[in-house]
């Protein structure tokens, strides 16, 4: 990655009441990239996000946004950031439009046309002039996204953004994030506890535990390919795989085998040749859950691969 990072967390630490909630966090976020932020409950995700949005002051370290320190140049630095912290809390007694107008007035150069444009993008045209108190949770999420996008931020921070959206809404939301990341080069930082959600949405994940960054890595890049093979008798199949020197591990009624795609026909021929009954050969996607367990040090695949 040769491009300049848009956001840098430098030695970010936070201590409250003698308890170190965040310790020496260093993360770089790049334009056009969607980064997932994972961690068990109480790991410090929300605290980190609050420091990145200026709601909390770090005890130590810096948040740098587009070259500007958030602590020293607050107004200019934050103007590049769009934020949804937890559930987007709106003024329920006003209409959706008035809410957007309210936030638009707090930014420079957000015109009425821009408000209309964003409303169209999030698909709220029909209900925008109704009071927010009549909205469903999903509609509030859409409105929350709209207010975060008003000023065309270079960097978008989202905390549990798909909470309350229906499946179609989640899908639409995901596509939309991918689009603004790809077309406008917006850097997106998403925290979520839904691993599958992060998996579908993100290019990269950062994992934190007990206030420390455990790992940060790209996902969807398979270093090796895996296939699921089901055959009887079982032990004979295992013996064959052993003989052919493949890494494999038992899974359900069969085995997950590390094997290249072009070697599959050869393996099938071998099975047929040995008269082992073959029921299934299918690609096995390593889920983020597996990777997550790997990172936190509890994965069985790690052991299998290192055999």
């Amino acid at each position: 990655m040769t491009t300049q990072p848009i956001v840098q967390l430098q030695n970010l630490s936070k201590t409250i009441g003698g308890k170190q909630l965040i310790q020496q966090l260093n993360i770089d976020l790049y334009p056009g990239q969607i980064t997932g932020f994972l961690g068990p409950n109480g790991a410090g995700k929300t605290t980190t996000i609050r420091m990145m949005t200026g709601l909390m002051n770090p005890t130590e370290g810096k948040v740098i946004i587009d070259g500007l320190s958030l602590q020293d140049n607050y107004e200019e630095a934050i103007s590049k950031v769009g934020v949804i912290v937890e559930n987007p809390e709106m003024y329920k007694f006003m209409t959706g439009y008035k809410n957007l107008l309210h936030f638009a007035r707090m930014h420079k150069n957000v015109t009425k046309e821009r408000i209309q444009e964003v409303v169209r993008q999030v698909g709220l045209e029909n209900r925008i002039h109704e009071k927010v108190s009549t909205y469903s949770l999903g509609m509030r999420q859409r409105l929350g996204l709209a207010q975060a996008l008003l000023h065309r931020p270079k960097f978008l921070i989202l905390d549990e953004p798909t909470n309350g959206l229906d499946p179609a809404g989640i899908r639409e939301f995901r596509m939309y994030l991918r689009k603004i990341a790809a077309e406008d080069g917006v850097s997106v930082f998403v925290s979520s506890h839904l691993l599958s959600e992060i998996e579908l949405m993100c290019d990269r994940v950062a994992v934190i535990q007990n206030g420390k960054l455990i790992d940060i890595r790209d996902i969807n890049v398979e270093t090796s390919s895996f296939y699921y093979i089901e055959a009887t008798p079982n032990d004979q199949a295992a013996a064959l795989l052993q003989k052919l020197d493949y890494n494999f591990v038992a899974d359900n009624n069969g085995y997950v085998v590390e094997i290249k795609k072009e070697d599959i026909p050869k393996l099938i021929t071998q099975f047929v040749h040995e008269e082992i009954q073959l029921f299934a050969v299918q690609p096995h996607q390593k889920t983020l859950e597996d990777q997550f367990l790997e990172m936190t040090g509890g994965g069985q695949i790690v052991e299998a691969n290192s055999k």
Binding site: L55, E75, I78, V81, V85, E89, M90, M106, H107
Partner: peptide
Amino acid sequence: STGTIKMLLTRPVS
């Protein structure tokens, strides 16, 4: 109490 303070303070206004 309504949580809107988060929306209000993450703006380019001191």
